[in-house]
Design a protein around this nucleic acid. Structure first.
Length: 464
DNA sequence: AGCTGCGGGGGCA
DNA sequence: TGCCCCCGCAGCT
């Protein structure tokens, strides 16, 4: 795809990065950037963002998607490609029709190890749904540091559900650790806990999955709408409905409660961070979100990634003929190879609250980014002059680095939401604040842009 | 152990 | 030539 096409596709979106015309490969990127985009964890589609070089998440090239480094032989541009998502090969469902959506391990070895494990629910093999959202290839993200800005460009539309976010995976891991280090709890207690924190797994009825490839499938995939509010692991908060009416979480009926996966299934003190990082709920994680490294879920896919990652023959042709991106409404193509459905926005069920935590919604402007903070350029270069792309170790700026800027009129009116997740003793485990997605996504949605997966957080915006 | 980034290298169009 | 991918390595957490 040419740069002009990219621009044409994305110019309708009004992030700071989209307002300006540039391409990650341009010799010179915009230098007069005075405003930056708030960090977007769940980017999707052909989008561009310009982050502040002070943004820690941007510095770490963070993404909710499982992105692995891809060598593009360009040391100035860091390229990452999406690994997809790990699901149960049988599409097994729990009582509520939920299904696993695990984060593939980034490390090849870890991923292979992950693939050897079984579904904690049905014991069947797990499957890695590779991402083929970019002309049959994985969605790619590009990062480039230039001046005081970090330029981000994404190419492709994820054709699979979201895996666990990095923060989720880390939280689960730490939850497992806590569980290991703490006295075992009874199933009864787990019931309470799950009812309180909600499920972390997402799923779709197998039938839905089958119908997913139905060319007649509606653009918004209502058929995939799960009646269960717990459908998506990300709908931990924003998608939360006003009530807590919900039967016991199906995870309670996992056949192997002692499975190592249980920490993932029923974390007693799981920090609800998932969709607080949703681009539609632009996170303001700041330094506290400096998740060092996430890990893959302790599950595996039955099929080889490498095999699946190979675009099937005729894929490109299919995509070309369907021109899924031609009109910037890629999801509307009947031929678009969406392989995995999710529920639909607007679903009342999807709006159900699943965490009973201290949720405070405050309306407050995002502070302007500090102006005199160290930039990438100020960092000592490595010995090798051939590696210009060397993000500095995260500085320790004051204030809220994650809320580094105001986008425009739209974003300036944005407000942040702070969520405090408390443990059983009432202590705050994690306190996060986040913002609704920037205007960009709003406009996308106005175009019917991103309803594919109907991540419950999407609803939040509408609720606003 | 796993994440991350870098770099060499092969295949393909 | 550009893009894709795989692989190994090293540093870090």
């Amino acid at each position: 795809m040419s740069r002009a096409e990219d621009r044409e596709e994305t110019d309708c979106v009004c992030s700071v990065g989209m307002k300006l015309t540039w391409d990650i490969n341009d010799p010179k990127l915009p230098q007069d950037t005075k405003q930056f985009d708030p960090f977007q964890e769940w980017t999707d589609g052909y989008v561009r963002y310009i982050y502040s070089a002070e943004d820690k998440n941007a510095q770490r090239h963070l993404s909710g998607w499982a992105m692995r480094n891809t060598n593009n032989h360009n040391c100035q541009i860091l390229k990452k490609s999406c690994l997809g998502v790990v699901v149960c090969s049988r599409g097994c469902t729990l009582a509520d029709g939920s299904r696993l959506q695990l984060r593939p391990a980034i490390c090849d070895k870890a991923r292979q190890k992950q693939q050897k494990k079984l579904c904690p629910s049905c014991n069947s093999a797990l499957e890695l749904l590779p991402c083929r959202g970019h002309s049959g290839y994985p969605v790619t993200n590009f990062w480039r540091v230039d001046g005081k800005a970090i330029f981000f460009q994404a190419k492709g539309v994820h054709d699979h559900p979201r895996p666990e976010s990095k923060s989720e995976t880390e939280a689960r891991r730490s939850s497992v650790k806590r569980r290991v280090n703490s006295p075992p709890f009874t199933p009864k207690r787990r019931l309470i806990e799950t009812q309180t924190l909600g499920p972390l797994l997402s799923c779709v009825e197998p039938a839905d999955r089958i119908s997913f490839i139905d060319p007649n499938f509606p653009q918004h995939y209502p058929a995939f709408q799960s009646p269960d509010p717990y459908y998506n692991p990300h709908n931990t908060l924003g998608e939360a409905p006003p009530t807590l009416q919900k039967p016991a979480n199906p995870r309670l009926y996992m056949s192997r409660p002692s499975y190592e996966f249980q920490g993932y299934l029923t974390p007693p003190s799981y920090p609800v961070t998932t969709d607080l990082c949703d681009p539609r709920m632009t996170p303001v994680l700041g330094s506290s979100s400096s998740s060092s490294s996430s890990t893959s879920a302790p599950l595996s896919a039955s099929s080889s990634y490498d095999t699946q990652n190979k675009p099937p023959p005729g894929w490109k042709e299919l995509l070309k003929t369907s021109t899924p991106y031609g009109d910037n409404h890629h999801y509307y193509s009947a031929d678009y190879p969406c392989r995995y459905p999710t529920n639909t926005p607007g679903s009342p069920a999807a709006l159900q609250t699943i965490i009973t935590t201290t949720t405070k919604v405050s309306y407050q402007p995002c502070p302007k980014p500090p102006t005199a903070l160290p930039s990438y350029q100020s960092c000592p270069k490595p010995p090798s002059s051939l590696t210009p792309y060397q993000p500095c170790p995260p500085p320790k700026p004051p204030g809220l680095p994650g809320c580094s800027s105001l986008l425009d009129d739209a974003s300036s009116s944005a407000y942040s939401t702070e969520v405090k997740v408390t443990d059983e003793s009432g202590g705050v485990i994690k306190s996060l604040s986040f913002q609704p997605e920037p205007l960009q996504t709003k406009m996308e949605r106005a175009d019917g842009y991103d309803y594919r997966y109907a991540y419950a957080n999407t609803y939040r915006y509408d609720d606003y």
